[in-house]
């Protein structure tokens, strides 16, 4: 499948900012299942951009802009070729071993309700792949999906209590539950063909299955990702894989607008 992505992020500040430093995880890495045909990040003000690869193997762009900045537009456009891999990730760059992804983080602590829910959902499963699929299906069935929205810092435990979930919350719950069952799991941010306009990148989870490798699970669909997905960044949680992490020096508030269109060419 040939997927076109047009992702615009606009920050508007109530007062001009003296400096902005942002870390962008907005560039998909090529694997055997996806290849970027074209990809471009552009910014509407004078800024310096530096590319690097972080400790998790993600392509990272540092963005430095000097003020006064009243607003900044970051736009990402590109085309990616994908193939259906049955949810299994092939040929990704993996600088860290799966075991690292057994760690809990402040965003993925289990809380009270989630462990019992997870244990119940996997009862009777014969192997770890089946357990993961059942966990994914159970999360899908239990949590009506909220539209994707900017990160509010919700933890997996808090999302579980709230009873509803964005794709971000659902992915974090999956990760927390899988790790609680001693299965390495990680957060993935990326894009998914969804028809219409979207208001934030999509998120799902990957878990490591011995003999298969990293396998994707999307609790929003209850299924594994297909060729309609583009993986961009992985991390231990939503914070670690955030598309844009930013700091600014200046007073006032910020307003964030995202316009995202993912479509088949």
């Amino acid at each position: 499948m040939r997927i076109a992505i047009d992702h615009r992020t606009r920050y508007r500040f109530t007062e001009p900012q003296a400096r902005i430093v942002q870390m962008l995880r907005l560039t998909p890495c090529d694997t055997r299942d996806q290849t970027a045909v074209s990809w471009m990040i552009s910014v509407d003000c004078d800024a310096r951009m530096r590319d690097a690869v972080d400790g998790f193997g993600n392509a990272v762009t540092m963005l430095y802009a000097e003020g006064p900045i009243a607003a900044i537009d970051i736009s990402v456009t590109g085309e990616v070729l994908t193939v259906d891999s049955g949810g299994v990730v092939h040929g990704s760059s993996e600088p860290l071993p799966p075991m690292l992804y057994l760690r809990t983080t402040p965003r993925t602590t289990l809380g009270d309700g989630l462990p019992a829910f997870a244990a119940e959902s996997i009862a009777g499963a014969r192997d770890s792949l089946e357990r993961l699929h059942r966990l994914n299906a159970a999360l899908h069935a239990r949590f009506p999906c909220l539209p994707d929205a900017p990160d509010t810092g919700l933890t997996a435990a808090e999302a579980f209590e709230s009873g509803r979930a964005t794709s971000r919350d659902a992915a974090q719950m999956f990760i927390a539950a899988a790790r609680g069952l001693e299965m390495p799991a990680r957060y993935v941010s990326g894009y998914r063909i969804d028809g219409g306009a979207q208001s934030a990148p999509h998120a799902w989870a990957e878990a490591y299955v011995e003999g298969l490798g990293w396998v994707g699970f999307d609790p929003v669909t209850g299924l594994s990702p297909d060729q309609g997905y583009v993986r961009v960044a992985v991390g231990l949680d939503a914070h670690g894989a955030a598309s844009i992490a930013g700091t600014r020096i200046g007073a006032g508030d910020e307003k964030l607008d995202v316009a995202l269109r993912v479509s088949e060419e």
Binding site: G55, P97, L100, L102, L236
Partner: peptide
């Protein structure tokens, strides 16, 4: 034992490879 490294918060994946 690898878990003493990888599951230890003192091992910082953020600076791995540097």
């Amino acid at each position: 034992p690898p878990e003493l490294i990888y599951r230890n918060d003192q091992f910082r994946p953020e600076v791995a490879g540097i």
